Computed example of a mutant assay.
Amino acid sequence: MARLVPSNFCLLISAVTLISCNQCEDYDRPSDAFNAFVLSPNGQNLIGNASTQYSPDSIEITRDTERVDFRVLYESLDNRGALMQLFPVKPHSKNSGTVRLFLRLSHTDVDTLDVTYETDHGKCFDLLRCNSVFYNGQRMEQNRYNTYQLIKQ
């Protein structure tokens, strides 16, 4: 009975295939953005198209002089209306730390956001996670949907 012996070529192809196979390709990279409402002290959403709200088109977020990437979403899990989704801003000197952002809601209304980030080193991805948010010096809490509620005084 003949014995089958894989050729060196077959072994080489198998080795290259195994090495080039990336286990992380099958996973979607999770979002490291965080969500935030801007609310009045009585809980009314301040972002929207009503005359008593800040227009999403007028909102700008900056760090020093550079614009920060964000978007306004109109569907939220708790039906409170529009919310902002802010994408992470890497601290200047390291992978973790606090970043000061300026939230311009209108031409005359500018607030500060101090966001603390920490890097989570994962098997497939490193994520810059938001640990805390201070809005105009006050620590903001997340609701049950992991959305920060920025209370405008």
Rank of each mutant, 00 (worst) to 15 (best):
L12Y: 10
Y54K: 07
Q44W: 03
D57L: 09
Y74H: 13
C130S: 14
Q44L: 11
D126G: 04
S93W: 09
I59H: 00
F70T: 13
Q23W: 00
P91M: 09
G97V: 10
S106F: 07
L103Q: 02
T147E: 15
S51H: 05
E66F: 11
L11A: 02
D64Y: 11
S20Q: 07
E60S: 14
Q153E: 12
V16I: 15
L18I: 08
F34S: 00
V38D: 01
N45L: 05
Y135S: 10
D78H: 10
L18W: 07
K152M: 02
K123Q: 14
N131T: 12
T62F: 00
V115I: 15
V72C: 03
C21F: 12
R144Q: 15
E66T: 10
M84T: 02
L11V: 02
V72P: 01
N95A: 09
I13A: 08
Q142L: 14
R104V: 01
M84W: 07
S7V: 04
I13C: 13
E75Q: 13
R104N: 15
L83S: 03
P30Y: 12
Q23M: 03
L128D: 05
G97I: 08
N8M: 08
V16T: 11
N79P: 00
N136G: 04
M1F: 11
I47W: 09
